[in-house]
Design a protein around this nucleic acid. Structure first.
Lengths: 207, 207
DNA sequence: GAGCAATCTTGTCAGTGTCAAGTTGAGTGC
DNA sequence: GCACTCAACTTGACACTGACAAGATTGCTC
């Protein structure tokens, strides 16, 4: 039984006592443990390669334990996506202007690749989930705010169009980055700096 | 046995005779049949939901038949990605200028959503595959050509940077479109026309 | 300290990908 | 006309997965 080897991987031993079997019946913070294990696995192999049973093994619990916290594979991924939108919203809210928001968007994708991938894979999610939709709305608001902050004073630049443009640019750059399609052209440079140049080139002259 | 119901779905009945069992032992064009069935399934449920056994059922063959043509799940997806890059390359080659190339990129993603999704999901592919890498190189050349066709005469606009920008914009727009994140803002309008406006707004003033 | 509800386990089922070994039949050379 | 060969396909098996049901354990509350 290799499971006994993993038994004490729980960080919070105080939550439950060990019991005679060596493994505490209650994990203490299984939900979080499963989440972080899932994020690791997704970052390594993508959402498709994810196995609930493997996550359970990593956390040192039985194969059906994750179901109690997430119900479902889709439930787990939905929770991850919701968390991701929350993180993205706070990241964007701290941006001074649109360019900075774009840089933060790219930074978020690099720092939370697993979240990012799942957030934009709707066929893996429970789309009707309340937590998910509210978190997404929050992020959406933060993005919209960043767009309208730049007044686009002169020349009738449509704010809505500019928003789509900015989002597309940042999202495309982040996606291509994560799928290793910009490894050659970006090379050794800091991707966020490259994006800053990019955004400056396109938006500085269009405002 | 429902399989007998699907037996004659092969378009080329001439390739083999029926035999006494009702189903011809040789399908005739199984490789293509599996591919198109896979494209349908992916467009509907994403690459994650794909089941080789289900594809076999749809084609009216045994569960292990696909393996003979594609070896693997990864093999099938790799073949799809390679085909996709080939299609994209020819689509881009016909573009007059950079804006047109972008529009065609978006058009490709809308017309071949399954191909597009698989092409940019490296963790699902056999990355070393020869056919894939050559097809990708072809598409990459076509893209590069479209970028350098616009000379960017004045002001030291880096061609490489402009290339990344154009690709990011088109890729991001296409990705967000397919993941239904632009359903609201784009609405009833033709997405390709929206993109054309977008690209015009950003690149017309930057060249 | 009794009972309750949350947490986790054990057992099971259908479905899947992949491998190995056998079967069919189309084409080729003679 | 005929044996041979080899690609195309089938059958069978194995380990693994997600999901469900029913039971065991334990922290909490009153």
């Amino acid at each position: 039984m290799r499971r006994t080897l993993l038994t004490m991987s729980s960080s919070k031993a105080s939550a439950t006592e060990k019991g005679p079997s060596g493994r505490p019946y209650h994990h203490g913070d299984l939900r979080r443990a499963i989440l972080t294990a899932a994020l690791d696995a997704i970052a390594a192999d993508g959402p498709s390669g994810l196995s609930l049973r493997d996550l359970a093994r990593r956390a040192g619990v039985s194969h059906a334990a994750p179901a109690h916290h997430f119900k479902d594979r889709a439930g787990l991924l939905t929770a991850i996506a919701a968390e991701g939108f929350g993180l993205l919203a706070t990241a964007l809210r701290a941006a001074a202007d649109l360019e900075e928001a774009g840089v933060r968007y790219v930074h978020f994708a690099r720092e939370h690749p697993a979240h990012f991938q799942v957030m934009f894979a709707p066929e893996l999610l429970r789309t009707g989930d309340l937590e998910l939709t509210t978190a997404r709305a929050l992020a959406s608001d933060a993005l919209r705010e960043a767009v309208t902050a730049v007044p686009a004073e002169g020349r009738g630049t449509d704010a809505r169009l500019a928003g789509i443009a900015a989002w597309s640019l940042a999202h495309g750059f982040a996606t291509l980055l994560l799928s290793h399609n910009l490894d050659d052209p970006v090379g050794e440079q800091d991707p966020e700096e490259v994006f800053r140049k990019l955004a400056g080139m396109l938006f500085r002259h269009a405002e």
